[in-house]
């Protein structure tokens, strides 16, 4: 048994450890609560366990976590449509890059003639989707833009 935690090597409470958790959280019936209180008066191990668990819970409850500044939330897409446009745009660009490489590496000149127009349209379409996503985000954020009313 260690000095820092006298119950570290202890086994489960024969009277039911789960009841102690319910006792700490205040969810027991009055009868169960009284039974646990009686137990705590005589069982040193149970008393220490309750104190430790309450201490851990208190540490958790009072822990404060970092928050994100408001301006950082605007970096990501602001609507489903914008997210879809952005994902389609990037997927389209990736596909376009692969197809362009394949066509350029191809020795058949007819391939370039047949698919060249589609490649240009695909590349431009993907770029347009990305621009549309950015425009949608801009449109969504415009009402809350703090610099909107600032005169040049």
């Amino acid at each position: 048994m260690s000095s820092g935690c006298p119950l570290a090597d202890g086994g489960p409470c024969p009277y039911g450890d789960e009841m102690l958790t319910g006792y700490i959280d205040g969810v027991l019936t009055q009868g169960d609560r009284q039974r646990v209180q009686l137990r705590l008066e005589t069982c040193e191990r149970c008393r220490s366990m309750v104190e430790e668990l309450e201490g851990i819970r208190e540490a958790a409850l009072t822990t404060r976590f970092v928050q994100v500044p408001d301006d950082q939330w605007n970096e990501a897409p602001r609507s489903t449509l914008s997210l879809v446009c952005r994902n389609l745009g990037w997927a389209g660009l990736a596909l376009w890059t692969l197809l362009t490489l394949a066509v350029l590496l191809s020795t058949d000149e007819q391939v370039l003639e047949s698919y060249g127009r589609w490649l240009v349209a695909g590349g431009l379409g993907s770029l347009l989707l990305l621009l549309l996503s950015a425009a949608l985000d801009r449109w969504r954020s415009a009402p809350g833009d703090i610099y909107r009313g600032v005169q040049k």
Binding site: G4, E52, E54, G55, E58, A59, L61, T62
Partner: peptide, 13 residues
């Protein structure tokens, strides 16, 4: 021991 040193009266929203 944790319980001995933690305050029990702090309030958290």
């Amino acid at each position: 021991m944790v319980a001995a040193t933690l305050p029990m009266n702090s309030v958290r929203p």
